[in-house]
Design a protein around this nucleic acid. Structure first.
Lengths: 314, 314
DNA sequence: GTTACATATAGATAGTTATCTATGGATTGT
DNA sequence: ACAATCCATAGATAACTATCTATATGTAAC
């Protein structure tokens, strides 16, 4: 491998190609022409002395050497980003960036931590990615962000995770629902009604369905909806009933009724997850330290499960 | 900081200057002239947008920004050294992947080579694909694997092949079969009986049928079965007779009888095949070199036909 | 078989970089 | 003050790089 013939630009282009999985697509994104990108890759391969990408059936396939180089690049650019942060800090003001990817439901609680943190460090950029579990998992696999928020952490082979919040699920029904004024109901009582559910793979739905299955219950009718808001509004307007994270429900929202289901106490946990094989920005570590010290202060103490000390933040 | 105007060479020179504490000294060490080094440093400082070195009283003083950059460089070069190590292992064939696709029958003999090889190189991944001839041929056409094992190699326009093992076929009958205790039989004697055959396109069946056709013989009855095991078991339980690769038969298996057919010595050869128009992993080349040197050692010498030297493995 | 899309190759050009030689201006020690 | 060092600047050049346009080639899909 001849480093002298490798420029950062070359690596940047290479990384983009790996991420996009396409030379043409990369060309478009970087405002280059396709031959330019092809040539860059070719040159990089020559400099490395090893094939990095194979083209088969019009699909790019990243070789082992290519994948390893990609990881190396992530680390290297990470270090330069840190250095950049150092420089801006040197010029006054703590800065940096902390990229967080979270699953949909987390967007209701994470801001309670992000807000105070952002006030404390106004120059830290906090780009947030919000997606369903599959999307976030995908980003996690590629190591695109500094921190991930999951309720069911993925394989921890190259990552560490720590719990910080209990996530109880509640059953809600329209105000005029037959069960709305029943003091105590059982899970089976709910089965005859139409359930509004998130898409398959959402953590809430997974949890609910595994509970049903383990108890041999089957829903008589269910409708899939794309977001928690949609479900909340739909329940309020009488379209059906639903199970939602308590954190999604404003405590003073009276447009629906929360049931007291005595024989089902569903709950998951929120985890902060960070990769151990990727460079984590200084700002991100800093945010996690902040979280470790202040979760009790900014989140409802009743639900806090602060295990963030488990994370190695150095 | 503008990474695009920073090259690894620039950083290398910078690191040397910091280590030496002198521009002139660095110039001498790197076989450059002093102005060259001065200029490099100047350029780097411009790209970083921050002074890195101060000259005071004829002494170089490294600024904070400079020191931090130095640390960053150490990390970055460290990552590339790691990557270099990875590449070295990859090239030495002691790491990497060797994808092999083989036809069904080969699964009885190839492991005898793969086992010892895998012990020798535990970091090499060995994903195996086992399928019938059509499936393996399909993979071959698409170039999905590094090595293919065939008994009748396909068109060699974009591939090279070399024999390594003789594959004799045997006729087997149930223990209670009329022919079971006949000392010597002829092929025509077998025609009245029901034959259990692999699916159309299997190498064994192809070989057998072409032999029949060339001698104008026709089977009176045949049944198609999906696997060699199924056929073996079916023969043992008296369902019919069959022709199978000797390598499929355990020598100590007494649940059937092997016939002595005096006028038919059917045999095919096992070939390693590799495409010439596709990148073949170092690990794969390495495996073939290993095979070339050790087939006699790990396979029954009686059947070895080692022509692997024909392969161009560089 | 035609169209659409992806990648590869060739040839051209403007711009950048690495490097040199020659020279000038500091600082230090004698 | 002078020599010895050290670093900075200027000017020159060959080599290399990034990028383009135009075109060819190879799959996939209709």
């Amino acid at each position: 491998m001849d480093l002298r013939h490798i420029s950062f630009r070359l690596l940047e282009v290479f990384m983009s190609v790996v991420k996009m999985g396409s030379i043409s697509e990369t060309a478009r994104r970087l405002h280059l022409t396709q031959p330019t990108v092809s040539l860059q890759i070719k040159r990089l391969q020559e400099a490395v002395g090893e094939p990095l990408l194979l083209i088969q059936q019009q699909k790019l396939h990243v070789t082992d050497a290519g994948l390893e180089l990609f990881k190396t690049c992530q680390q290297v650019f990470g270090h330069f980003e840190d250095y950049q942060d150092f420089l801006t800090e040197l010029n006054g003001g703590s800065r940096g960036r902390c990229k967080i990817a979270m699953v949909n439901t987390a967007q209701y609680i994470l801001p309670k931590l992000l807000g105070p943190y952002s006030n404390l460090h106004p120059h830290v950029e906090l780009p947030l990615e919000i997606g369903n579990r599959a999307e976030v998992l995908d980003r996690f696999e590629r190591g695109e962000d500094d921190i991930y928020v999951f309720s069911h952490p993925p394989s921890l082979e190259h990552a560490q995770a720590a719990r910080f919040l209990h996530n109880p699920l509640e059953f809600i029904v329209p105000l005029n629902h037959p069960l709305a004024h029943v003091k105590a109901v059982k899970l089976t009582d709910l089965m005859p009604y139409r359930f509004l559910l998130r898409e398959n793979g959402s953590a809430t739905r997974m949890l609910f369905e595994s509970e049903l299955q383990s108890r041999g219950l089957v829903l008589s009718d269910s409708v899939q909806m794309a977001s928690n808001e949609a479900i909340r509004v739909a329940v309020a307007s009488g379209l059906g009933i639903a199970v939602l994270s308590r954190h999604v429900l404003a405590t003073d929202d009276t447009s629906f009724k929360v049931l007291n289901v005595t024989d089902a106490h569903l709950a998951s946990q929120w985890y902060f997850v960070m990769r151990t094989d990727r460079h984590i920005s200084h700002a991100a570590r800093n945010f996690l330290k902040f979280a470790q010290q202040h979760v009790e202060q900014y989140l409802d103490t009743q639900w806090v499960r602060n295990e963030l000390h488990k994370l190695d933040l150095n």
